[in-house]
Simulated assay, not measured.
Amino acid sequence: MLTGVFINGLAIVMGSLTGVLLRNISEEMKETVTKGIGLGVIALGIQMTISTQSFTLIMISLSIGALIGEALKIETYMNKFGLFLQKHFSKSESSFAEGFVTASLIFVIGSLGIVGAIQSGATGNHETLYTKAVMDGFTAVMLTASFGYGVLFSSIPVVLYQGSIAILANFLVQLIPANFMDELMNEISAIGGLMILGIGLNLLQLTKLRVSNFLPGIIILILLLSLKFVM
């Protein structure tokens, strides 16, 4: 049930270790690579967002989620956790926390991880997560070359997040109507696309969005869609 999840986490670790070997490339090259990833992330975010069938619902969920996220200071605590890891594992890495948070968001948010984890948990089919592992591993190489060891530790939230979904899916997916599941996955992909778009803008240094604080919006969206389905 968790094979695909662990392969995904391992790919991030291996990609990060490979990226360490590229740390000596020039700052100009690192900047170009990082901004190239930013452009790709923006394109992915736009592609995911335009799939929505209810943009109004997405905006409501994102706004309420932002209020909750700011109140809970999710971004602040994620940065503190990254700094805690930096203190214990990489005292010389000034960008450790930024790398951890940025990589965690890129690897966690998105339809591939959610759909793949559900497939793994419900059917034992890991192909989607294997595809995501290849993408994440390559991205980890580039991010580690730019941000350092913090990217390696992003494998922890990825395994915990996708593993939790797979375990829950194993027990719950058979209770959810197929038509509702399709709509749910589509809208989760769309709201995740907006967050991915924010990450891309941050990577290009055009904005300093606290993207982590938007994460509760996914839960709000699920609740609103469930209410809509019941009514």
Rank of each mutant, 00 (worst) to 15 (best):
L175F: 14
K91Q: 14
G124Y: 01
H88W: 15
G40V: 00
P157G: 06
L44F: 08
L175K: 13
F6S: 13
I218N: 05
T128Q: 12
S61V: 01
S26M: 08
L72F: 09
M185Q: 12
G45K: 04
I114M: 10
S104P: 00
A178F: 14
S146K: 11
I7N: 06
F55G: 08
L204T: 03
I156C: 09
I218C: 02
I106Y: 14
A103F: 01
N202K: 05
I46A: 06
V141I: 13
I106W: 15
V211T: 07
L184R: 10
V158Y: 10
M231Q: 14
G40K: 05
V115F: 15
V151Y: 01
L203D: 03
F180I: 06
S90R: 11
T18E: 06
I165P: 04
N213V: 01
T139D: 04
A97L: 00
L2F: 11
S155C: 07
L39E: 07
L152E: 04
A178M: 15
T144Q: 06
S164A: 14
S226Y: 14
M1K: 10
T32I: 10
S94H: 11
R210Q: 03
I176V: 03
G198E: 02
V108G: 09
I60E: 07
T76W: 00
Q53H: 13
A122W: 15
G198C: 07
L221V: 04
F229A: 15
E183H: 12
M29C: 12
L44R: 09
G36R: 15
I167T: 12
A43L: 15
V115H: 08
I106N: 06
S51P: 10
G124K: 04
L105E: 05
G113R: 09
N125M: 09
V159M: 09
G198A: 02
S111F: 11
L143D: 01
P177Y: 07
G200D: 02
